[in-house]
Simulated assay, not measured.
Amino acid sequence: MYSIKNISPEELKGFNQTIDKTLLYAVIDDKGKVLYLSKKFQKLLNITSNQDKKPIEELMTTDEGQQIYLKELIQNRKKNWSGEIEVTTRTNAVKWLEMSINLMHNVNLKQETLILCSDITERKHNEVTLEKISKKEYDEKIQLQKTQSSQIVEAQEEERKRIAKDIHDGIGQTLTALKFSIESINASNIEATFNKVTQLKEGLGFLIKEVRSVTFNLTPPELSDYGIVPALNKLVIKLSDFTGKNIYFENKTDFKGRFDSLVETNLYRVVQEAVNNALKYAASNYILITLSHSVNKLSIVIDDDGKGFDYQKLTKKGKESGMGLFFMKERIRYINGRLFINSEKNEGTRITINIDLDKT
């Protein structure tokens, strides 16, 4: 360890010069008069050595409000202080300083104050920039949520219109026809009445099928009664009969579990949407739904041999099918799952749904 006695005057002078050029510091008396101001501090504040006789608050800033704050901060202080301050230099440059005020006594026991500063202007500018970026990202997120909410409402309205159209075009027209048939029955003409009754039976049979079809599309009873596996199996059978396409369901790991109704409903709707998209937009002739599970994960994969598509282009254009994919992702995200879409033109499509079993 070196002793102060072993330091030569030249070394001490060099040491003081180094400190003078590298540190922002000032020494003031108990009246606020500057006793010493380091060269680095002078350079930062854009003042010369013959100007440093003014009170410290006038040297540090040209802003009157800042001068008043600094004067109150420094004078009549009974204990040390540290914090951040804003100052305005003679060139109207705004600087941020991290400042500490340290009370001390000289050899004559007179109180002096040592002011040490660090220039944190760049850090403050970065903080402001980061805050602006964060606010922009937050605003964009809020706007996205508003857009998505609007799209969800629109989709709900479209679904209501579709259900109303199904009821009007199918059930409504059949009921009207049955009404007219009943009103036209002439009991005195037995043969005509018999034919009318036969027609009414056929009409009622068609009506029952229409009601079952509409209610099945709304909520299949198998889903609430028996779970996702029987519901998907019934969906495949119904759609195969209705479309004449090759649609299959395979429960590879013989899964028999049940989930919360919200999870089961969203899983079912996403699979239903995927199959409908494959039939409606991809002109698929072969669709395979595969369900498998492990200790922690359930996977449902929907493969089709359809036309395929460019996922990025489709979602950017906001087409009806693109909106369908958007809502599929939203449904799966809502139940803490993940959905992956892989598709190429003329190469078919694979949609994979993964659900963590320990979170459902």
Rank of each mutant, 00 (worst) to 15 (best):
I28F: 08
K238G: 11
N189P: 08
K71A: 15
T349V: 01
E183A: 12
D119N: 03
Y25L: 13
A177N: 04
L357Q: 07
Q66F: 15
I47Q: 09
N195W: 04
K43H: 04
V263S: 08
L291V: 10
F255P: 02
A282N: 12
L223N: 07
L114V: 13
G83A: 08
P9D: 11
S213I: 09
N285A: 11
R162N: 12
D310T: 04
I85Q: 02
N217L: 11
L24I: 14
L116R: 00
K329W: 00
F327C: 05
W81I: 01
K79M: 09
N233Q: 15
K329R: 10
R331Q: 06
K5L: 10
D63R: 10
L357V: 06
L130M: 05
Q156M: 14
G322Q: 10
G227L: 14
L37I: 08
G318S: 07
T349A: 05
K136H: 04
I185D: 02
T253H: 08
G83K: 05
L35T: 02
I351F: 07
E72L: 07
S224D: 05
N266T: 01
E11G: 03
K234N: 14
M1F: 07
I247P: 03
T360E: 12
L178E: 02
G203H: 04
F326L: 13
K238T: 13
N296E: 09
E10K: 14
K256G: 06
E127H: 01
D52V: 15
A283S: 13
L178R: 00
I302V: 13
Q51R: 09
L109V: 02
E57Y: 13
V275W: 02
R123Y: 05
K136Q: 09
N6W: 09
G244R: 15
M328W: 00
E210A: 15
M323Q: 14
D358K: 10
A274T: 14
F216E: 02
N217D: 09
K5C: 10
F206Y: 10
S213R: 15
I115H: 02
D166Q: 09
A26M: 12
Q66P: 01
T129I: 02
S118F: 13
K345Y: 02
L223C: 08
L339Y: 01
E127N: 07
S184A: 14
I19R: 09
K141L: 10
I4S: 14
F326C: 06
